[in-house]
């Protein structure tokens, strides 16, 4: 087929051995696995959204027409937006510092970033459940400092989810942003200074614009990852601010409503893919997956 003639056209000087597998054939086992256990199941799930309980778009009408579900969509965007904003706000100065500080200090910070990223997600979420509870350390310290009289409700609400998710997402914004700032030629900033720019002007008009592609790409990635997050919102959030992934799980697990589950999954998929398309269009593939 195409692959075979193309391989010949590419003109490999090595005579093909007795094994006449083409390069395309080599990808077939993985392709089979992916089609059978990824493409087909997802397609079936999405198909059920328009076939169950009755054929048609009833599930979508219900999903997009009810204020309960719209509130969940809004909350999903709110949490993801907040997490992205806070991560960016903290992530930029840290990435900047890492790019300029002596490497022996930077490597300590990198080790901490790596440790945090690689530590089991549930262990990290558990830590925040304990830290943020009413009798937890954070409330105790705040009371001890005389800042508050009664423990603050820090968990099972928006505050809890935002803290817990920012904790998880920070490395995903710091690492790519570090890469981008690292590549900026220091001479450009020297030139800005020579031309009479003070520090603020250099920051706002030179460094930030140069780092902007990295910031936008990192922010988009964190935002998309947050949109589909399940575990942390389920454990640190409350029932009042459910997120989309929890809604999908609830439709399927407790309500056994596959039609609605499929419809909600499609909404999440469409939003995710649309945002990735934006990312690919504007920032190329190199920052996909965030590593």
């Amino acid at each position: 087929m195409l692959s075979r003639t193309d391989a010949k056209a590419a003109g490999s000087k090595i005579p093909a051995g007795r094994l006449t597998l083409t390069d395309f054939d080599l990808t077939l086992p993985a392709l089979g696995l992916l089609v059978l256990f990824f493409v087909v199941p997802v397609a079936i799930l999405l198909a059920r959204s328009v076939s169950e309980p009755v054929p048609g778009f009833g599930n979508y009408a219900e999903l997009l027409g009810s204020s309960t579900y719209l509130r969940i969509f809004a909350n999903t965007f709110l949490v993801s937006g907040l997490v992205t904003f806070v991560s960016l706000l903290i992530g930029f100065p840290v990435a900047w510092a890492l790019a300029v500080m002596p490497s022996r200090f930077a490597s300590v910070v990198f080790a901490i970033l790596l440790l945090s990223m690689w530590t089991n997600l549930l262990a990290r979420t558990y830590a925040w459940m304990v830290l943020l509870q009413r009798t937890g350390v954070i409330n105790k310290v705040l009371i001890g400092l005389g800042l508050i009289d009664k423990p603050l409700p820090l968990v099972n609400n928006l505050t809890g989810v935002t803290i817990g998710m920012t904790y998880i997402m920070l490395p995903f914004i710091i690492l790519p942003l570090y890469g981008v700032i690292r590549k900026i030629d220091p001479a450009i900033l020297q030139a800005a200074a020579l031309c009479g720019a003070n520090r603020w002007q250099s920051l706002v008009r030179v460094l930030l614009p140069l780092a902007m592609p990295g910031m936008a790409a990192g922010a988009l990635m964190v935002f998309v990852m947050s949109l589909g997050y399940f575990v942390t919102p389920a454990l640190l959030g409350g029932t009042a601010n459910m997120m989309l992934a929890e809604l999908i799980a609830q439709f399927v697990q407790s309500l056994v409503n596959w039609g609605m589950g499929g419809a909600a999954a499609l909404v999440l998929l469409v939003v995710t893919l649309a945002l990735y398309a934006v990312q690919l269009r504007f920032f190329g593939t190199d920052r996909m997956g965030g590593r």
Binding site: L45, L269, G289
Partner: peptide, 9 residues
């Protein structure tokens, strides 16, 4: 890159 919850369900 897809949300794991979709694959899970």
């Amino acid at each position: 890159i897809l949300p794991v919850v979709v694959l899970a369900v």
